[in-house]
């Protein structure tokens, strides 16, 4: 039953790292189940999944920032137990009768465990109260349909009404073609809500995460007062493949990365994920944002020490 893979396991570590992660039969790696190891898509080396989790899902070798789900993101950014979700029950329908869309929606829900490509709500970040929304790669790669646009618009309207800042983590392949022109209209709708929030003198911080493209780039992602990004994130209006096909030439290295956009003047700062929460808190603190009262603040340290006992 043992095939070659079993013996490669006994080879020195640097050889081991070359084993592709998805090469798994029941017998191939008897001592270390696959799920314990993750292949870094950038440096190709293998990382222990627990190490990756402990490192905010940033590669321990090359600092590649893995894509993470919206829930994982909220866990990293919001103070413990502070996040309260809004409109979590809103679901998309096949409003223009697009073929196969119902099945795709069901598959996306099943895969992500979410109802839509964005999660919205309120939270505190190191005590600072804010509205937050986070887009999810596992739900149709964060594509923007009418419900996505509606949830984001409501988040801004709530923030405007309650004089709160908005922190956004964007991630999207663009507008969702299965809802036709009504997806496109979400770009204008969300932009209108951002403008009203901005005109009320309120702070909006966007964090562009991998990938932020298309209609999301061309609307609320680029409308922040402060625009941050995660290292290496792909950010653009058109996708690199579309551009290559249009102009029939190879694109320069690092084109459309977070660092490229920063150097071209479109991103304020590229921030490591492990410093993101403190960075956001610092920026919020510079804008007279209300801090939650002490008894409202979740006693994070206590809880942590309880767990360690």
């Amino acid at each position: 039953m043992f095939n070659g893979d079993f013996f490669t396991f006994l080879k020195p570590k640097n050889e081991l790292e070359k084993i592709p992660a998805d090469k798994s039969t029941e017998d191939s790696k008897p001592y270390i189940p696959d799920a314990l190891w993750v292949n870094c898509p950038k440096c190709k080396r293998m990382i222990l999944a627990t190490d990756l989790d402990d490192n905010s899902r940033v590669c321990t070798q090359c600092n590649h920032h893995f894509r993470i789900t919206a829930r994982q993101r909220l866990e990293m950014i919001c103070d413990k137990d502070s996040f309260v979700e809004a409109d979590g029950d809103m679901v998309s329908k096949n409003i223009i009768g697009f073929p196969d869309y119902n099945r795709k929606l069901a598959a996306a829900k099943n895969r992500s465990g979410e109802n839509e490509s964005v999660i919205t709500g309120v939270c505190t970040i190191n005590g600072y109260k804010t509205v937050i929304f986070v887009m999810d790669p596992s739900f149709m790669m964060g594509s923007m349909g009418t419900v996505t646009g509606e949830k984001i618009t409501r988040a801004f309207e709530y923030a405007t009404e309650n004089k709160m800042p908005v922190v956004a983590f964007t991630l999207s392949g663009g507008a969702r073609m299965q809802e036709g022109i009504l997806s496109l209209m979400q770009m204008a709708k969300t932009s209108g809500a951002v403008k009203r929030h901005s005109d009320a003198g309120l702070l909006y911080i966007t964090v562009l995460t991998d990938p932020t493209t298309g209609g999301v780039t061309a609307s609320f992602a680029m409308e922040g007062d402060i625009i941050l990004s995660e290292p290496g994130a792909l950010i653009g209006f058109a996708g690199p493949r579309v551009i290559e096909q249009t102009i029939r030439q190879k694109l320069p290295k690092d084109f459309q990365t977070a660092e490229f956009l920063r150097d071209k003047g479109f991103v304020d700062a590229v921030v490591d994920r492990r410093k993101m929460k403190d960075t956001l808190a610092k920026l919020l603190s510079l804008h007279n944002i209300e801090k939650a009262a002490v008894d409202e603040q979740p006693a994070e340290k206590e809880i942590e020490s309880d767990e360690s006992i």
Partner: peptide
């Protein structure tokens, strides 16, 4: 869709208009 358009912020320009 092109290199210059992306370098000069096609997405940002459209977003600002909206």
């Amino acid at each position: 869709c092109g290199i210059g358009a992306e370098e000069r912020g096609q997405g940002q320009a459209i977003a600002e208009n909206l």
